[in-house]
Design a protein around this nucleic acid. Structure first.
Lengths: 245, 245
DNA sequence: ACCGTTTGCTTGTATATACAAGTTAAGGCA
DNA sequence: TGCCTTAACTTGTATATACAAGCAAACGGT
């Protein structure tokens, strides 16, 4: 593999965190300790810590220590594409559990969303996405059978439905609606949440060049999932002066 | 003052980009050139380039050069600037009702958000925004007194706090976090919502060139307010990766 | 003209060293 | 006890040096 030394140290640290050995706020070894442990110079161990802190995995504070950061489960709004990528980016394990995968008949609401007739056939999948064995998202997806005829034959525990759809019907546009809801008891059960827990729900409609591909309702436990975003304003922050402390 | 050397180099580069001197894809001086220019070691100039590339300002490619990155297409997604504009855009009446306008002492949470000490003074306003006489948003805003010393003397039923802050401390950056919550009884009361109604809550932090300006918590009744947006996908996320775990 | 090698740039990794700056806890004096 | 100094850590900045790895253009022989 020929991983460079600082990458080995990063991998080691991520491993400790991932395995639960080091919990949130747990102090990691200091630069000097890591340098000794791995027989490298301090600058090398430092680089590992620096990059991990940059990535939001660790938090450093001068004069004190470097600790495992509180995980914020944040995602930028622009990247609501793939929950699997998001989880993997946090170096956590991702599992998809297929709950339902079948044909359904469009009711009035679905017919309106897809702009089809009531009674037309759609594909439907209900998949629960788990991060480190804990439910993070319940994905209810309705798919246009014309654009993905083999949808029901896929193994969505091996490839995400999103990835599959991107393959067979490259998306050109998406629309999101975000709202706060208290989900029905069925969803509560799948997400392992208590009664009356608020949830963040994203309704996502996607189009390819050939028309609307899918309508997905993504429900997240409100207390764990955060949907964040940064907006930068045109003028670049030169940030030369002060910080008003 | 007393900016460290690598920060001076970063500022110099950002300046060149901001002034239009260096356009997209324009190569910036090499590590060695910068080192000579600023009379620093290569490791120091390198750090400036490294951080800027990490921040997405520059793109580096081994063996070739470091160039100004292509600007990313901005999201039109979170246009959460001004609830008053939004209501007026729907041709409805907008009213602000000031509930609280006072000094507060920073607790641990606020201190962390503002990066100040616990016990420092902040300004606080709680304002309820009504659409057609019905509550649509409860705005809890904490303001840096250094950047808006006259905040408490304003009449926020005549001008929105957002508009005032934009005037006295033009914003350069903002960060949003959206989540679903069940608010406390006080907020429930102000928003006229029943017990255990889910709400969409936006936490918004804004910066001007002189530092962080304000931290606002905007709470909306879940059943009425929706946060929507369109995202266009210029280049398609290949996302071919099958996860073999 | 074609093709491989060399040369000279670039960025990437790694080390040893030095001092500055921030925090905490132990120690000592009043 | 209470307060202050100091010592012993931590992270942050900066330097000089070395070699590895990637790329491209100049060079040279066929």
């Amino acid at each position: 593999m020929a991983m460079s030394k600082f990458q080995q140290i990063k991998a080691y640290i991520l491993n400790q965190i991932d395995s639960g050995e080091w919990q949130e706020q747990h102090p990691v070894p200091s630069e000097n300790e890591l340098a000794k442990l791995f027989s490298v110079s301090r600058m090398t161990s430092r680089r590992a810590l620096d990059e991990l802190s940059q990535e939001g995995i660790l938090e450093r504070s001068q004069g004190v220590a470097t600790c495992v950061a509180r995980l914020k489960t944040q995602s930028s709004l622009l990247e609501i594409k793939n929950i699997a990528d998001e989880i993997k980016a946090r170096n956590h394990s991702h599992l998809s559990r297929v709950i339902t995968l079948t044909e359904v008949i469009a009711d009035a609401l679905l017919a309106e969303h897809f702009d089809i007739a009531v009674g037309d056939v759609l594909f439907h999948s209900r998949i629960c996405h788990l991060e480190n064995q804990r439910p993070l998202q319940l994905e209810d997806r309705y798919v246009n059978p014309q654009l993905a005829p083999d949808y029901l034959q896929q193994d969505f525990e091996a490839i995400t439905s999103h990835a599959y759809l991107c393959k067979v019907a490259p998306l050109t546009q998406a629309e999101h609606v975000v709202e706060a809801v208290i989900p029905d008891s069925d969803i509560q059960h799948h997400l392992h949440i208590p009664f009356n827990q608020a949830c963040l729900q994203i309704q996502r409609r996607t189009w390819s060049s050939d028309g609307m591909v899918s309508y997905a309702v993504l429900t997240h436990p409100g207390h764990r999932y955060r949907l964040g975003g940064n907006v930068n304003f045109p003028s670049i922050n030169t940030s030369n002066e002060v910080k008003a402390q």
